[in-house]
Design a protein around this nucleic acid. Structure first.
Lengths: 199, 199
DNA sequence: CTCCTATGTGAACATAGGTTCACAATATAT
DNA sequence: ATATATTGTGAACCTATGTTCACATAGGAG
């Protein structure tokens, strides 16, 4: 209707943004090009001026999420040298992203579990490995600095730390928001922190 | 082809079993009545002799999983009174179910995240609450018996314990089995156990 | 201002998937 | 053995959804 013509760069951004919104609301598997186009304000066939097909749009969305997660990780590591503080901030950030950029957990879970296109799965896995690797680094550095018990396996610590997130997210989603993620995360984090702190 | 006629009770079981297999292999969202019927050895339309529609089949599958999980929980609790041993066995059992009855994690995750039909979601949530409640009970009893630190919140302990499972499962799935769940679970569990043991 | 290319539109097409229906064949009870 | 109810079959259907295409139009380059 409007028939406003925008540069393909801008439109691509709009489309990916819209895709993220839909993923957040309904999950990766339930995106339709119709809904996507409606959200952007154009007609379905117009999407194909900017992307080869639906799959390409989804991959772009996954990549965008991955980039944002990466930026967050870096910022946290530059904020403070103290490992426990880093972890504390990281958890807060992730929880915030989970709340605001809900597309992230949906992508990690859907792609990881529902085995969509292999490319997307690979992307999601790469993102996850990035996150886990960074957490593991924080752990090692914390151990080297004498802030975290050195008798514990850094990798296991990292997996366990990260594990608090999916647990909270699943409970949150399944309970339709009735489950208080933030509070739960705080408590679990306290527990965890006391357990790993050097003594 | 075969045209063997079986009692609707038997066929229902076969169908649900086939559904569980497909869920395990491809996730809840990707089940087609065609594939389901093929697996059972009948034609798609024949399914409708035994179930009202696809949704009813999926719900039956979810319920079956829920029942099996419940049975497992009971058996674990009757096996030993010691809380730490119970948790140990519970983790092993769950990991075994995750490997053998892969439909379980897929249902919990897919239903929880991808918001399928509200009824299924409710079922999955009920199952999850059952599990969490049971774990919480074990924690409390362990605290009462002086086996688990009493200064920790039983609910947070339960969520954290349970959280080890989704974490491991996600990593396993995303890595296409390259990630060694069992070993990871062992390590994390050791970590966790040491953290909560009364001293 | 005038082209020409990039973008948007509507309609049509293709496919996949769930469901229904008329009919056939088997099991079971009498 | 026959009749009746139950189960299975194939075809058709309906809808949703991804995609293509011919055509229209906006907007910048010349």
């Amino acid at each position: 209707m409007a028939l406003e013509k925008l540069d393909t760069g801008i439109r691509r951004e709009q489309i990916v943004e819209a895709a993220l919104g839909l993923i957040a609301a309904h999950g990766v598997g339930r995106i339709s090009v119709a809904a996507l186009a409606r959200r952007v304000g154009i007609v379905p066939s117009a999407l194909y001026r900017h992307f080869k097909n639906k799959e390409e749009i989804l991959q772009a969305a996954v990549q965008l999420v991955r980039r944002r997660v990466g930026e967050n990780l870096k910022e946290v590591c530059e904020a403070t040298p103290n490992a426990l503080e880093r972890l504390d901030q990281l958890l807060r950030r992730v929880m915030k992203m989970v709340r605001e950029l809900q597309a992230m957990p949906r992508i990690v879970f859907s792609e990881g579990m529902s085995s969509g296109h292999p490319e997307r799965k690979a992307q999601a896995y790469a993102m996850l490995k990035e996150i886990l690797g960074e957490i593991e680094n924080i752990m090692r550095q914390g151990q080297a600095r004498g802030e975290i018990r050195s008798d514990l396996d850094a990798r296991a610590l990292a997996v366990m730390f990260w594990g608090m997130v999916p647990a909270a997210v699943i409970l949150w989603h399944m309970s339709d928001g009735r489950f208080d993620v933030t509070r739960q995360a705080e408590r679990t984090w306290e527990l965890y922190k006391e357990g790993i702190r050097a003594r």
